[in-house]
Design a protein around this nucleic acid. Structure first.
Lengths: 216, 216
DNA sequence: TGTACATCAGTGAACGCGCGTTCACTGATGTAC
DNA sequence: TGTACATCAGTGAACGCGCGTTCACTGATGTAC
């Protein structure tokens, strides 16, 4: 998975330069988290990273390509998550694994929330690079979930009128949004545990067709 | 529901001015749809509306207040949708009403998609006005759905471990996202009908605890 | 170990564009008599 | 019905700021001998 990094002029960069590049990316994430997606500026990023504006352009052609690098980071972190779905949930005992999956998903989401939000925004607006990145990431998880729906339908545990792909996409959307709004949902009296158990219960039932156990 | 409109200087505006204001709002929606959320400019809006930049500031203090006016429009359109949930789904026959709800939701979503996306973005970034607007709109639908979950739990059709509010929020998120990505989901072989039936089936089962009928 | 040179990495300062916003103004519409 | 005036509505042109981006440069690190 190790990639040879190059500067915008094509030069292969050394250790020190790689560290600077990383600092710029970290600063970008930090600003996305504190300032938000709508007014992210190259100048601010370099200031945050303690570098001159010109430095940014040594490593990235523009803001978009820096964001796309962060998007790739996020996608990599999604692979282990997808691997957790390799073994489908087929008995009530698998509830435990479903619950573990939700916890892992929460960590992933927390790390990359803003980058993913921005990626989706740019993809919705029709940018081809961001579209491709989203599709690639989405498929990692959704395909596995869709497989599970299909298997559950064949086993007679789920109704045939569910479209497996759409169901999987919907479940992912549900999880994303609940994590995203965790803060405001908790304001309304739900605990962190209660929220995650709810996400897990809906996932479990909708994908496997098995009712979750009576107590989480 | 009729509101007296005022210009930024406080004057009450007449018919002609109200039409201009409306033209500016319509142009804003149009640009949101064609250009996207990230580079919406006052200058572009006025150009699209066939007016001078200065005209914009006669009706709106800034871009945000124009967006908030559009957000209010969207929220109004959500009321009839919420009313459809007044009578809960308690028998398999209510599947028809669930399916109608999903269709109505699709129309609403299609009309206001971009405005809602922008509202959510600004709310996530912490803007108090947009936060308030989102909460107000969300509650219209989510409260009704949460009531349904609670009733289904009391009737023994749904497990108690589901948090009603979180479940409702998740269902709304799922529906939103599936409509939002309808285009890309359909690329993968799902029909428009199939998608809507899938949304309806998940909603129906998750909120009422009743399995949807075998054929949609 | 020291020195000269090559290459790598980072920067200060500036240019130019485009956007938000305002001001003093013009044109359109309504009203009194 | 026409005219004078008041009010409503819309605008052209400009200012100024801030951001993206670049260029010629300086400083840091590595390497040969």
């Amino acid at each position: 998975m190790s990639v040879t990094l190059t500067a915008t002029d094509g030069r292969i960069i050394g250790e020190r330069a790689a560290a600077t590049r990383r600092r710029l990316l970290d600063a970008t994430v930090k600003l996305l988290n504190t300032e938000g997606v709508l007014d992210l500026k190259v100048v601010d990023i370099t200031r945050e990273a303690g570098a001159a504006p010109a430095t940014f352009y040594q490593y990235f052609a523009d803001l978009d390509s820096a964001i796309l690098a962060l998007v790739d980071d996020a996608t990599e972190d999604e692979r282990p998550l997808a691997a957790m779905l390799d073994a489908p949930w087929t008995t009530a005992a698998d509830w435990v694994r479903c619950r573990e999956f939700v916890d892992a998903y929460g960590v992933y989401w927390n790390d990359h929330q803003r980058v993913i939000t921005l990626r989706n925004l740019r993809a919705d607006e029709g940018d081809a690079s961001f579209r491709g990145a989203r599709v690639r990431a989405d498929l990692l998880i959704i395909r596995k979930m869709a497989d599970m729906v299909r298997a559950s339908q064949e086993a007679g545990r789920l109704p045939g009128l569910l479209d497996p792909f759409a169901t999987a996409a919907g479940m992912r959307a549900m999880a994303d949004r609940l994590f995203q709004h965790e803060a405001s949902i908790r304001l309304r009296g739900t605990t962190r545990e209660g929220l995650r158990t709810t996400i897990a219960a809906i996932l479990f039932h909708t994908l496997s067709g098995i009712a979750p156990p009576v107590s989480g």
